[in-house]
Simulated assay, not measured.
Amino acid sequence: MNILFLMKYYSLGGVEMVTNVLASRFLDNGCRVSIVSFIEPSNEILCRKDSRIIYYLLSGFNTSKKNIDQLRNILIEEKIDIVINQWGLPYVPIYVLKKASKGLSLKIFSVHHNSPKTNGRLKDIEIAMSETNNKFCALILCMKKVLTYYVTSYSMWYVYQKSDKYILLSDSYIREFLSFTRVKKATKLVVITNPITIPYIEEYEKILSYKRKEIIYVGRIDYNQKRVYRVIEVWKLLEKKYPDWKLIIIGDGEEKSKLEEQSFQLGLKRIVFEGFKNPLEYYKYASLLILTSEYEGFPLVIPEGMAWGVVPCVYGSYSAVYDIVKDDVNGIIIEPQKDEFDAENMAERMSLLMCDNVRLKLMAKAAKQMSNQYSLDVVSDSWYKLFV
């Protein structure tokens, strides 16, 4: 079986890491795998790419005849049976793919890696609307939001119509997808989660022996989605009460320097900004993981941390998190209060674990057990059932 992953870009991100892990597994099982991206890749992701994967670069993110011809040549040369379109929202990839594959016998599976009902563009407009006091600007932004909503909805509907199957990351996203796109029947919808992309060990007792009094945040540092300033607000309520604990921020982004300044102004002493690092060593030693995103698709940091016995403390702003985290069993979920994040509630719930090591260990064990559902074996088997 010959498989091609179609990417908008190929850089160091969650979708790309998932692609690399799945590609290597498919290769191990005798498939031939290619990756094609529209935009030039980063050196970091190329260094992490399995050397057996064949990589191709198209000529920019557009619907040009040159791109169509290039992709068609690749499909024919590699004798592609299945294309996994990793960008199930934009119009460009599926349009180019359908033109390039005309007359060829192959299947197209498109994947949407986020919550269907929101995205970065819509959230940017909402943020701008909340910050303006100008009635005219507010009106323009409202119109822009409506237009963006319908363009996004149509684009997602178009990709669905042109695909053989459309993959969502959670059962809860099916209803959101149908409502957002106004697709009448869910005959093409399939739910397959993303797999854990990091190595881990199975022995829970050994994992337990590594643990320190550390809380970690892992991910991009931005305002639109991740809202890491909320993590700082929670830590401000915990630091003095728990002098033997510390908070480690692993990640980078446009808000990093601002949050470092915020932490300094608040007089926080036991907070460390590590920048962009491989999170594996941090999962190994951490006891708690905190995630306060405004929206997500399927944040891999949660099951990957759970695989290392890290108890997740998360903001329940998106439905998929309730698939992964069972509140007070294998983690903590703070539900929105009038669509707002409650830092005090998060701090109180985390505090109950930080002062009760027995309970913390029980939840860590349950988290470890839950992570088995997202192993590469389980997820790749789901893909093979789809291929057949």
Rank of each mutant, 00 (worst) to 15 (best):
I248L: 14
I249W: 04
I250P: 01
I250M: 07
I250V: 13
G251T: 01
D252M: 05
G253N: 09
G253A: 07
E254Q: 11
E255N: 03
S257N: 15
S257A: 14
L259C: 04
Q262T: 12
Q262S: 11
Q262A: 12
Q262N: 11
L268I: 07
K269N: 11
K269R: 11
R270V: 04
I271S: 01
I271W: 05
V272N: 07
F273A: 02
E274F: 10
E274D: 12
G275D: 14
G275F: 15
G275V: 14
K277C: 06
K277H: 02
N278R: 06
N278I: 11
L280K: 07
L280Y: 07
E281P: 01
E281N: 06
Y282S: 01
Y282M: 00
Y283S: 04
Y283R: 04
K284P: 03
K284H: 08
Y285P: 02
L288D: 03
L288M: 06
L289R: 01
I290R: 02
I290E: 00
S293C: 00
E296M: 01
E296T: 00
G297N: 03
G297V: 08
G297C: 05
L300H: 02
V301G: 03
P303Y: 13
E304F: 09
E304H: 04
E304M: 06
M306W: 09
W308E: 06
W308M: 06
G309M: 07
V310F: 10
V310A: 10
V311G: 02
P312L: 08
V314A: 02
G316R: 02
S317L: 04
S319A: 13
S319Y: 12
V321C: 09
V321H: 06
Y322L: 03
I324S: 04
I324F: 07
K326G: 01
D328G: 07
N330C: 14
G331N: 09
G331V: 13
I332W: 12
I332Q: 07
I333S: 01
I333N: 02
I333R: 01
I333C: 00
E335L: 10
P336F: 09
K338P: 05
K338F: 15
E340Y: 15
E340D: 15
E340I: 15
E340L: 15
E344V: 12
N345S: 14
R349P: 10
M350R: 01
S351D: 12
L352C: 10
L352T: 09
L353N: 01
L353F: 09
M354V: 08
C355E: 14
C355I: 11
C355D: 12
D356A: 08
V358E: 13
R359T: 12
R359E: 15
L360P: 03
L360E: 04
K361L: 11
K361H: 10
L362K: 11
A364V: 10
A364K: 03
A364N: 05
K365P: 08
A366K: 08
A367W: 05
K368T: 07
K368V: 08
Q369P: 02
Q369M: 12
M370T: 11
S371C: 13
S371R: 08
N372T: 13
Q373N: 13
Y374V: 09
S375T: 13
D377P: 02
D377H: 10
V378C: 08
V379N: 02
